[in-house]
Design a protein around this nucleic acid. Structure first.
Lengths: 192, 192
DNA sequence: ATAGATTGACTAGCGGTGCTAGAGTTGCGG
DNA sequence: CCGCAACTCTAGCACCGCTAGTCAATCTAT
């Protein structure tokens, strides 16, 4: 029994290594640099080994995305918890969201720009993603007014997503980033 | 002289055909289906001919994007012109924006999600793109209040962009699309 | 203990990608 | 009429995601 256990342990470890290698490579050189061959070289196994762990490259990216979801949710939660009042909570979580997207662009892309990987509303979405969304929703709750909270949150979240993606692609003036964020926050969580 | 003129005419026509083929293929089968080989087959020339017109595949996509910018600007302008009052103008242009993104997803992607193609703020950006942005800005002007109009517009535009991209990727509930649009409009162009 | 079965990682290869070097044809200017 | 320049072609490079089939190592059962 112990031998099988060791095997499973080694296998799990290798799977962890694959995801970690994919993530590191993506963060340091971008997703284009993440090829199955390079990944295989990184973990010091042959290419087909990857396919005994994941259905394909997309599945590996999805695994990285799931990992990233957890971190993002944690950072959003921390930002919310640190805020002294509801309005500053919105500002804080917006800043945290943008900071995450900027600091971990590859991770952010895996989560939100991946061709088809994670569906937000479906049950295949990891609980961490739901947690991140819930953090946003709870932060916004005091400001939803008569609007449905989920719809309200989706709209605010879309604003954040648009801001970070367009800016990273060089389609928005970087210098105005904070002002745009503040403006968005002000529209969804106005003073008084 | 007439022979050279004819050659140039044919060459220009062929270039037009390349862009048209790329656009048609992208709209009917998605950008993944747009390969240099299929493009070459479509225009009934060999592959390397493409490279005598464009530096690479990215340049072809950029050309498609420029074409799309013009149409988008026109549709936004029409939506603005058709509106009876400033607030309905914002609602109308938002709807037109979302409709364009939905009706021409490949074109929209070429314009706004292309790796690096068009920089909004740089001079390489086509005038049509600036026109589209200006339509948005003029529509929003009555509501910018004390905020800088360009920053205000960028933020609203990001909201639209986030809504249409996240929804198309299946990360937002489709049924709530119009409600989210209305909510966004209401935040940037409130009643009274 | 050994023969057979099973697991699992490997080499090699398929069909595809964007792109390019060099050959070969075509038409112009001296 | 001939040499030259322009231009399109075939062929091929290096890479991609992915898979079939070989082969060694391990486990099972006699």
């Amino acid at each position: 029994m112990s031998i099988q256990a060791r095997r499973e342990r080694e296998r799990a470890e290798r799977e962890r290594a694959i995801v970690a290698a994919a993530r590191d490579l993506a963060e340091s050189e971008g997703w284009d640099a993440v090829t199955t061959r390079r990944l295989a070289a990184e973990i010091e196994y042959s290419q087909p080994v990857l396919y005994s762990h994941f259905k394909g490259k997309d599945a590996i990216m999805a695994a990285v995305a799931v990992e990233g979801c957890g971190e993002m949710a944690a950072e959003l939660a921390a930002a919310r918890a640190a805020a002294p009042d509801p309005r500053q909570a919105v500002a804080g979580i917006a800043t945290a969201y943008a900071a995450f997207a900027e600091r971990r662009p590859a991770l952010y892309d895996a989560i939100f720009r991946l061709p088809v990987a994670l569906s937000f509303a479906s049950q295949e979405a990891p609980v961490e993603l739901a947690r991140a969304f819930a953090e946003l929703a709870e932060t916004l709750r005091p400001f939803a007014g008569g609007d449905d909270l989920e719809t309200f949150t989706e709209t605010f979240w879309s604003g954040l997503h648009g801001l970070v993606t367009l800016m990273r692609d060089g389609r928005l003036r970087r210098a105005e980033h904070e002002r745009r964020l503040a403006l968005l926050v002000d529209r969804f969580a106005p003073l008084g």
